[in-house]
Computed example of a mutant assay.
Amino acid sequence: MSVVTLLGVNVVNNPAKFTDKYVFEITFECLESLEKDLEWKLTYVGSAQSDSHDQELDSLLVGPIPVGVNKFAFEANPPDTSRIPIDELLGVTVVLLTCSYDGREFVRVGYYVNNEYESEELANNPPPQPIIEKIRRNVLAEKPRVTRFNIKWDSEATAPAEFPPDQPEADLVADEEEYGADELAEEEAETAEIEAETGGDTAMDGVEGAEVDNVDEDELSDDGSVDIEGESDDELEEEEGEGEGDVADGDEMEVDDKPAPAIGQVPPVH
């Protein structure tokens, strides 16, 4: 169980100019006293092609942390445009808000950010050299992607079973009060609806079970797989032709914004 739970993040100045600071109002709950401060960071993804263009916009130490619900404001500088490829200044990118304890990251919130010109004229006819002061950013605050990691806190009792492990994937079971829990419940409901419509066969779509049942034992290899070498070239070409044109749709982040309650202030320590 996590000692610190993220309850809400509010993007204060949104939309804003590309050159404006990022301002986040963060609410979290602490279940027990902590020996060290929490470290918050904001990272801007400068390119989808390489993480070498990622920029840490700012970091902040918050503490000492009182037990209970706390809220504070986190301001971060805008990205350095000289470190972003010119052809990726406009369009959609990502900012990552992370929090670590004693050097161990335990929560990450990702937001899509859309950068576009303020005027329709520039948007339709962008100049070869981007005009930074004319670019507006819009953080899709209502659609975050929240990822949680199990870490060791102050006591050994809080350590994961195989500590220190590589950072695990997102915690699949989110508490109802945690930031992002509504989004997870929404995704699970959509999955259940799809399975109900398809009879629960979505994971095996396109697999013909009857054909496997009728395979002769002589056609099975030692490991139980089917030997397809005996199939004719015409049959293989026909199967390949049937598979052409199948395109998988991309997944979208679907979440609901959960406003932060008005709670007391936690003093940041730099």
Rank of each mutant, 00 (worst) to 15 (best):
Val107Ser: 02
Glu118Trp: 02
Asn150Gln: 14
Glu142Ser: 11
Thr98Ser: 15
Pro128Cys: 05
Pro144His: 09
Tyr101Asn: 07
Pro144Tyr: 07
Leu184Asn: 01
Pro160Val: 05
Arg104Gln: 13
Gly180Leu: 01
Phe163Asp: 15
Glu186Gly: 09
Phe106Lys: 08
Ala141Ile: 03
Leu90Tyr: 00
Pro144Asn: 10
Asp175Phe: 03
Asp171Phe: 04
Asn125Gly: 02
Ile135Pro: 01
Val113Ile: 15
Glu195His: 06
Thr147Trp: 04
Asp166Gly: 15
Ala170Thr: 12
Lys134Gly: 00
Glu169His: 12
Glu156Arg: 03
Phe163Arg: 03
Ala192Trp: 13
Gly91Tyr: 01
Glu105Thr: 15
Pro126Leu: 06
Ala123Lys: 13
Tyr111Met: 10
Pro128Thr: 09
Ala181Cys: 01
Glu116Ile: 08
Pro127Thr: 03
Ile86Met: 09
Pro144Thr: 07
Glu183Trp: 05
Glu193Ser: 13
Ala185His: 10
Ile86Cys: 03
Ala189Phe: 13
Ala159Met: 09
Phe106Glu: 03
Ile194Leu: 15
Glu178Phe: 00
Leu122Pro: 06
Ile151Gly: 02
Arg145Cys: 05
Gln129Ile: 15
Ala123Val: 01
Glu169Asn: 13
Thr98Asp: 13
Asn138Lys: 14
Phe163Tyr: 15
Pro126Phe: 04
Tyr117Thr: 05
Ala181Val: 01
Gly110Lys: 06
Thr147Glu: 14
Ile151Cys: 03
Val139Cys: 10
Pro130Lys: 08
Leu172Met: 10
Arg145Gly: 07
Glu169Ile: 10
Gln129Val: 14
Ser155Asn: 12
Val94Thr: 12
Val95Asp: 02
Val95Lys: 00
Pro128Ser: 11
Pro127Arg: 02
Gly180Pro: 05
Val173Lys: 13
Thr93Pro: 00
Lys134His: 13
Tyr111Ser: 05
Glu142Tyr: 09
Asp171Trp: 04
Val109Gln: 02
Glu142Pro: 00
Arg145Gln: 11
Pro144Trp: 06
Ala170Phe: 03
Pro168Phe: 06
Asp154Arg: 05
Ala157Tyr: 05
Lys143Glu: 12
Thr158Val: 07
Pro164Met: 12
Gly180Phe: 01
Glu88Cys: 02
Pro128Tyr: 01
Ala161Glu: 15
Asn138Ser: 15
Ala185Trp: 03
Ala192Phe: 12
Leu90Asp: 00
Val173Gln: 13
Pro128Ala: 14
Gln129Ser: 11
Pro168Met: 08
Ile194Met: 10
Arg137Cys: 05
Val113Arg: 02
Ile194Asn: 06
Ala170Asn: 15
Phe163Gly: 01
Leu172Gly: 04
Pro144Ser: 10
Ile131Pro: 00
Asn115Phe: 12
Lys152Asn: 09
Leu96Lys: 10
Ala157Asn: 07
Gln129Asn: 11
Glu162Ala: 13
Gly91Arg: 00
Val95Thr: 13
Pro160Ala: 07
Pro165Gly: 07
Ile194Phe: 12
Asn125Asp: 12
Val109Leu: 03
Pro127Leu: 04
Leu122Gln: 08
Tyr117Gly: 05
Glu187Met: 11
Glu162Tyr: 13
Val139Leu: 13
Asn125Lys: 05
Asp102Arg: 11
Val109Lys: 02
Glu118Asp: 11
Lys143His: 14
Asn150Pro: 00
Pro164Leu: 14
Glu186Asp: 09
Leu90Trp: 01
Pro165Thr: 12
Tyr111Ala: 06
